[in-house]
């Protein structure tokens, strides 16, 4: 059984296109990245899965549950993190977490026969379930360093995000759907959070998350689905993408050494998107490079450079490179 299946899903907001006729699958027990530039339709897709918005046409299911008919069941087994987290501003964080817990405490598995055998906490007795959810709250609060005594409205963007992360995991979901989970988190907290996600994944939780940062997806995902302008470009394993490390490189060099550099760059297919310019004192060359970075350094070792700047490409640049290569 697939964890998520989406078939021919289309969503229009009035006349504006959200996503058009997209189909993809997510394997059970994997960490699956959903990547695309801003406005590509990532959030739209995730929101349709959680019944936040309704699809114009098309259907899908999560662990065999239909997204249009088994709405409650899906919400019970899934943890969802919106990209912008807003909860009742005047409530203390501590109370918000407890209120969220209460939505799940009175659920009886007998009312939801489709959930039987999925290994959710709803198969536990009410006491055990509440105990587990409370321990989840404590664990997540200390791990994510959440200020429980503050009012939600007083928190910074990053801290709000952390509360959102905790809320998405209170009911021990077996499926996590996360919309840009690391946005607003500092790098240390990002590491901590990805560690947490990997732990959850090892316990069997399927994780499907969206991002517009390629390197982030590369770090944790096994599979990735790429979306652009409301359409799926490709669903592939991360190893294929990883084979090519894409870098933006900008070299500043004295004019007398330029000849030597030019020889290295010209006519070589691993250098794309080459731009040359010059200032009063130096020449500047920028290009996108796809290959082992050591090979490049080897080639440059005999040339005297003034400065070299290596950065991750934006997703747009990475895609452009990706398409050029495929042609």
């Amino acid at each position: 059984m697939k964890a998520i299946t989406v078939n021919n899903l289309t969503k229009y907001y009035g006349d504006n296109l959200g996503v058009k006729d997209i189909s993809f699958e997510v394997e059970k027990g994997t960490i699956h990245g959903f990547i695309g530039p801003n406005g590509a339709g990532k959030s739209t897709t995730l929101k349709v899965l959680l019944n936040v918005i309704l699809p114009t046409t098309g259907h899908g299911n999560i662990l065999g549950l239909d997204i249009l008919h088994d709405i409650k069941e899906i919400k019970l087994i899934t943890g969802y993190l919106p990209s912008e987290i807003n909860i009742y501003e005047n409530e203390k964080v501590e109370n918000l977490l407890m209120q969220t817990l209460k939505y799940y405490s009175d659920i009886s598995i007998n009312d939801y026969p489709k959930l039987k055998g999925l290994g959710t906490i709803f198969e536990l007795s009410k006491e055990d379930r509440i105990k587990e959810m409370k321990s989840n709250i404590n664990r997540l609060s200390s791990l994510l360093n959440i200020a429980s005594q503050k009012k939600f409205g007083e928190l910074s963007f990053g801290n709000k995000k952390k509360v959102g992360l905790a809320i998405s995991m209170i009911h021990s979901p077996i499926m996590l759907i996360l919309d840009e989970p690391t946005g607003g988190l500092d790098p240390l907290m990002q590491d901590e959070y990805f560690k947490l996600l990997k732990e959850e994944n090892e316990k069997g939780v399927t994780i499907f998350f969206s991002s517009h940062i390629l390197s982030e997806v590369e770090r944790v995902c096994e599979k990735v689905t790429i979306i652009k302008e409301g359409q799926i470009i490709e669903s592939t394993s991360i190893d294929k993408l990883k084979g090519r490390s894409i870098k933006n490189i900008k070299i500043t060099i004295d004019p007398e050494n330029f000849q030597a550099l030019d020889k290295v760059i010209d006519g070589n297919k691993t250098f794309t998107n080459v731009k040359k310019g010059e200032t009063e004192f130096a020449k500047i060359v920028s290009f996108t490079y796809v290959n082992d970075i050591n090979t490049l350094l080897e080639k440059l070792k005999d040339i005297t450079l003034k400065d070299i700047n290596i950065t991750d490409p934006t997703l747009e640049e990475a895609f452009r490179h990706y398409y050029e290569e495929r042609k």
């Binding site: 929101k47 959680l50 019944n51 936040v52 709405i71 409650k72 919400k75 019970l76 969802y80 919106p82 912008e84 987290i85 807003n86 909860i87 009742y88 501003e89 969220t100 939505y103 799940y104 659920i107 809320i167």
Partner: peptide, 14 residues
């Protein structure tokens, strides 16, 4: 109004 509807609708509620 307060942008909380996404939180509310993703609880187990129709």
């Amino acid at each position: 109004k307060n942008g909380v509807s996404e939180y509310l609708i993703t609880r187990p509620l129709l």
